[in-house]
Design a protein around this nucleic acid. Structure first.
Length: 832
DNA sequence: GAGCACTGC
């Protein structure tokens, strides 16, 4: 875009520039900057009034992406602020006309209705054809029939078919290729045509089989005929013929054309080179037919499409607002998206769109628009970003479409548990009691907000600088943030050879994965270790296509991981002063100890994603117990969940694990598994633990290296109150902690200068922690003074002495005989 | 022993 505009304005790239996440060419001379919504959002965080700009244009606002929505909310406040300053900012929101009311009629957003400028689209007319009836189930079969019919009866022009997923894309491609074989016949024809060319040497080539096409546009009669033939086929199908394909194939081969069809798959996860085939002209004498998912609706535009076949279906990811469990469901699209799909037929000339559903279904069952993204996904990252901008009351923000309270609440709860937000402060004022309590960003939260990843991963990065682990954590987080690093789905095999190849590839992959996982702590890091090794070894080999293919890695994904690793490495170095890491293409695998520490960091980020294995049910168990075989219990869910079979820990089944997410397919499956130890829970997931009282045996102690009072405590974890064994922890902050500190101080464990008086103390230091200690004034006095100055560690004690060198002097004198008082006064404070 | 649409920091 920036290139093209620069050219048309006769300017250079220095003046018309662009900026996206990973790259840009902005210079000090830049006057017009093209950027993504996320980039502008980051700029608002740095300079709220966007003082660098005089005009902001938001394009594609109707797509309602989360960052665009938030930007519009922010800009609705920034524009008046700039006006007040006398430094005007113009805002132009560009949106497909249909949806403009979302912005213009929202009085919370724009107090005064903004003027609307309508611009007609430059589109060729597209004739819409609805099906008379809507197929109940087999929309794929219906799509197949429609493509056959178009190809058989209508003039030349590319066909674009919308289906919902890669499997469907491949299935339909295969069926179409079988029916209109391209190889063989097509090649013969091409040879023939070449021969003809040589023979006649005419300048005008006869178009292949032009006679087979009806040149007239389809009239209603033809349509009715076509529908009738549909009826016939469907009736036959209803009678119990399972294989509609073969029948259709016969029908078509005997009746109509066998003109080859050049069929291409298209979906986002497809490799770049396979995707870009759709942009090349099809071989001579062939009609192009692209079978695509939603990528072809907005992201990619295929040239020369004259016919669109729309199943009307989409596959969408859904989240459970409470549990966070995700599922994929196939539903009707929206009217807006249906029209967008139809529009794809009218880019180079008049076109036709065949909708495989009735107009009644379209009118009654289709929503006007697809739901805005912000109400369909967890918002924890957005809430953190907004709190970072000091927007504390999320509910008051002028969202074009506000996320619902449950989503926001879940996000705040998570962020509080991660330590990114303060515990909610309940207002004491009566009138505020009904309001939701405010949570504010913490210093940790501010660090986390700087990392462009999910808050859980940001927490891992914030902890990773300890023990030289940051390079590993960066690589793992980068890997986790990129979708589908491993090729786990295959297109259905076309031949026996392919089938065998797939099988051996899958076997080889699972061996490699096992090898990558290793043993010991490395193996217990589980799927994340496999990910780390995959990234490490791919980079070591220079991230070649060959290496990726051989090891079942998606090349595009690995490239993305590389870029994200670089970005995270930069950010980490900027945000964490002592980080100082570099992007090492030859990163060595972590040591056993490091792998253990990484597991602990992973737990700290996924404290709410812990699961525990159910005990194996006995042979005579009832149904509910039987369902728990190999199953896990997790904190948020009542139903049993399972380790996904792709996990390296699938067979291992460790007792305690953390998972990245749960997806519901045939079962509730956890993915991205690492094993943890239950003793770690109180340390790395403290907000989910309820601690017991400090145990008497073993007794509390003073840890010199940590300068902490330590004690043993048992605890329970989570909603289901799992018992966690006794572990050594810092003594909880309460009055008893001061008592124990006083005791260790008197025993000479804290400052060496007090050691020599231990034998002459008038009461035993242990009286400090006895319940009857109140009876003695000297214990009471010491305790009071420690509490008053907040002294419960050596560090705080030294500070208190810095302020007041006589601190505790009188009190301590009460513990030792009079004869020593002068000496003590002379050497106070007893630091050495 | 499974089965994932799409995009932005």
């Amino acid at each position: 875009m920036s290139n093209r505009v620069a050219k048309e304005l006769n300017l250079t790239e220095r003046e018309v520039s662009y900026q996206i996440r990973y790259e840009g060419n902005v210079t000090p001379d830049t006057k017009i900057k093209f950027m993504t919504d996320g980039v502008l959002l980051k700029e608002v965080q740095k300079d709220f009034l966007l003082t660098k700009y005089s005009v902001v244009i938001i394009d594609e606002a109707h797509e309602r992406s989360v960052y665009t929505d938030i930007l519009i909310g922010l800009l609705s406040r920034i524009v008046p602020l700039r006006n007040k300053q006398g430094n005007r900012l113009k805002l132009i929101i560009m949106s497909a006309t249909l949806r403009v009311e979302d912005f213009t009629e929202n009085r919370r957003l724009f107090r005064i209705e903004p003027p609307v400028v309508k611009v007609d689209s430059r589109q060729f007319p597209v004739t819409i054809h609805f099906n008379k009836r809507t197929p109940l189930e087999d929309y794929l079969g219906e799509a197949f029939k429609k493509v056959c019919k178009i190809h058989r009866t209508l003039p030349e022009g590319g066909i674009l078919v919308f289906v919902t997923g890669q499997q469907e894309v491949h299935t339909l491609c295969k069926k179409l290729r079988q029916t209109f074989p391209f190889e063989g016949k097509a090649e013969q024809k091409l040879k023939k045509s070449r021969r003809k060319k040589k023979e006649s040497k005419t300048e005008i080539l006869p178009k292949i089989n032009l006679d087979n096409y009806s040149i007239e546009p389809v009239d209603e009669e033809a349509e009715r005929e076509a529908d009738d033939s549909d009826q016939e086929i469907e009736d036959n199908f209803m009678e119990g013929d399972d294989d509609v394909t073969s029948q259709l194939g016969e029908d078509l081969q005997t009746g109509g054309t066998t003109e080859p069809l050049y069929v291409l798959p298209l979906y986002s996860l497809l490799s770049k080179d396979k995707q870009s085939k759709v942009f090349d002209p099809p071989p001579k004498g062939c009609r192009l037919c692209v079978v695509a998912t939603n990528v072809a609706e907005t992201s990619l535009t295929i040239p020369d499409i004259k016919y669109v076949v729309d199943t009307g279906k989409v596959k969408t990811k859904f989240y459970d607002k409470v549990t966070g469990v995700s599922t994929f469901k196939i539903t009707w699209t929206s009217k807006a998206s249906g029209n967008q799909r139809a529009g794809r037929a009218g880019r180079t000339g008049p076109g036709h769109c065949y909708r495989l559903y009735s107009s009644a279904v379209y009118n009654d069952d289709f929503e006007k628009f697809s739901l805005a993204e912000i109400i369909r996904r967890p918002v924890d990252d957005l809430v953190l970003q907004m709190k970072y901008m000091n927007i504390d009351r999320i509910v008051n923000f002028p969202f074009p479409t506000p996320p619902d309270d449950e989503q926001v609440k879940a996000a705040e709860t998570l962020l509080v548990s991660l330590g990114a937000l303060t515990e909610p402060i309940k207002s004491v004022r009566m009138k505020d009691l009904k309001k939701t309590p405010i949570t504010k960003i913490t210093p940790l939260g501010k660090v986390m907000a700087c990392f462009p990843v999910s808050p859980r991963y940001a927490k891992m990065l914030a902890l990773g600088h300890q023990h030289d682990l940051l390079s590993y954590v960066v690589a793992i987080v980068a890997g986790l943030s990129v979708q589908e690093v491993f090729v786990e789905m295959q297109k259905p095999p076309d031949t026996d050879q392919e089938q065998d190849d797939f099988r051996s590839q899958i076997q080889y992959m699972s061996q490699v994965k096992k090898l990558w996982a290793g043993t010991g702590h490395s193996m217990l890091l589980g799927d994340l270790m496999v990910l780390l090794k995959a990234i490490g070894s791919a980079e070591y080999q220079g991230c070649t296509i060959e290496f990726c293919q051989k090891h079942g890695l998606r090349y595009k994904a690995m490239k993305e991981v590389r870029k994200l690793r670089a970005q995270l490495t930069n950010t980490v170095n900027m945000v964490i002063p002592d980080a100082n890491i570099c992007l090492d293409p030859k990163l060595k695998p972590p040591s056993d100890i490091q792998a253990k520490l990484i597991r602990q960091i992973i737990l700290a980020g996924l404290a709410d994603h812990v699961a525990r294995r159910f005990p194996d049910p006995p042979p005579d168990a009832d149904e509910t117990l039987k369902k728990r075989k190999h199953a896990y219990q997790c904190t948020e869910l009542d139903e049993p969940v399972f380790i996904h079979p792709f996990s390296v820990l699938y067979k291992q089944k460790p007792e305690f694990i953390v998972y990245q997410h749960i997806e519901e397919t045939s079962k509730l499956y956890m993915k991205g598994i690492s094993a943890i130890e239950s003793e770690w829970l109180p340390v790395y997931a403290p907000s989910f633990c309820t601690l017991s009282k400090p145990q008497e045996d073993p007794p509390p102690s003073y840890d010199k290296s940590k300068d902490q009072i330590r004690c043993h405590m048992t605890s329970t974890f989570g909603r289901c109150c799992w018992e966690v064994p006794s572990v050594d922890l810092e003594y909880p902050a309460n009055l008893d902690k001061y008592r124990w500190f006083a005791r260790f101080l008197l025993e000479g464990a804290v400052v060496p200068g007090m050691k020599k008086y231990v034998t002459m103390l008038l009461s035993s230091p242990s009286t400090m922690v006895k319940s009857w200690a109140k009876l003695q004034p000297r214990t009471e006095k010491l305790l009071k003074e420690l509490v008053a100055a907040g002294v419960d560690s050596k560090e705080s004690l030294l500070k208190a002495w810095q302020k007041d060198p006589k601190y505790l002097l009188n009190t301590f004198c009460q513990w030792v005989p009079q004869s020593k008082h002068t000496e003590i006064e002379m050497t106070w404070p007893p630091v050495k």
